[in-house]
């Protein structure tokens, strides 16, 4: 056990013995030179196109003036952040963002997995492929059309109310917003998202199944002992990444769906920033909010990664 010497190593351990460090490194380079050669273009890509522009993050700490540029604009320190934190709605915005995200995590994350498992259980191949194809179709319909349908279905005199002979104003009720938002999202994307898991299932060695069948395992045991462990690495990694997206609830669909009567549950960080942008196009403000979100997301990711490394052995690093 060695202690970390840099903060980077706390997060991404190198596991090197202190002595003979240079020798270890040069040996590694020699042994794996092809691997490093492969890695080089990828790292270069990230360096140029992602780290290159990263200086722009300081916009969050400036009063950005496009004509003066990033380095010519006045420094305002934490003013933009304070503007955001001082909003009367700050707490509510955070709560709504997290609430929607967690609801989507609890229901929307497992749904494609379950779908993939169910599709996998089908015996007849043509039907299997039909189900898979049909379920991914709504993914391609634009969100404007999907919300348009929803507004029509859930209107007071719309389909849903007619079906159940009720008169509930779904689209104007804050109590219903999250369910409608998350539910419609699952409906639209579950098929598409299941593709990754189907592919993971497809890479499982079929001989494992044969062996299990010979041992007399029924389909439930096969699923439990073969399929699920087979896709577990994929599931875990995607779950870690999903934790790193907790604060990222986009505004596009919400803007189409919400109205002031549902602000209580529907107004999230991104929609608030959007409305503020109508009053004053303010790069700095949205950059500051974005940085805030990213910092929280990243911290969550690191935490999730660590926990996962301990519990399951799978992790990003």
């Amino acid at each position: 056990m060695r202690t970390a010497t840099t903060s980077l190593e706390i997060i991404a351990p190198l596991n090197l013995p202190k002595k003979g460090r240079w020798q270890t490194i040069s040996r590694d380079f020699r042994r794996n030179k092809h691997v490093y050669l492969m890695l080089l273009p990828v790292l270069l890509y990230y360096l140029i196109f992602h780290y290159g522009p990263m200086y722009g993050a300081v916009i969050a700490f400036e009063d950005f003036n496009p004509i003066k540029g990033v380095f010519g604009s006045t420094w305002v320190g934490l003013q933009n952040f304070q503007d955001f934190f001082s909003s009367v709605y700050f707490g509510r915005l955070i709560f709504n963002t997290v609430a929607i995200s967690v609801l989507d995590l609890v229901f929307g994350f497992p749904a494609p997995i379950i779908l993939a498992l169910l599709i996998n259980e089908l015996r007849w191949n043509p039907f299997k492929r039909l189900v898979q194809t049909v379920t991914y179709l709504p993914h391609f319909v634009s969100v404007v059309v999907v919300v348009g349908m929803m507004v029509d279905f859930f209107a007071r005199d719309g389909l849903v109310n007619q079906l159940f002979a009720t008169n509930v104003a779904y689209m104007q009720s804050a109590e219903w917003f999250r369910q409608l938002f998350v539910g419609s999202g699952i409906w639209q994307h579950v098929g598409w998202l299941s593709i990754v898991y189907l592919a993971a299932i497809a890479t499982i060695d079929p001989q494992l199944y044969d062996a299990a069948k010979v041992d007399g395992a029924d389909r439930f045991r096969q699923m439990w002992h073969i399929t699920i462990p087979g896709i577990l690495p994929t599931v875990v990694i995607l779950l870690i990444l999903r934790m790193g997206m907790l604060m990222s609830v986009g505004y596009e669909k919400i803007i189409l769906m919400y109205n002031p009567l549902t602000y209580e549950t529907a107004d999230v960080i991104s929609t608030y920033v959007f409305r503020r942008g109508i009053l004053q196009a303010d790069f700095s403000f949205s950059a500051a909010v974005g940085l805030f979100n990213s910092a929280i997301n990243f911290a969550l990711l690191i935490g999730a990664n660590r926990i996962s490394r301990r519990l399951s052995g799978h992790s990003l690093w």
Binding site: D83, S86, S87, V88, Y89, P260, Y263, D267, Y272, R275, R276, L279, Q280, D282, F285
Partner: peptide
């Protein structure tokens, strides 16, 4: 903008 964002909401 900072003031009116909240007031408008």
């Amino acid at each position: 903008a900072t003031t009116m964002s909240d007031i408008n909401t």
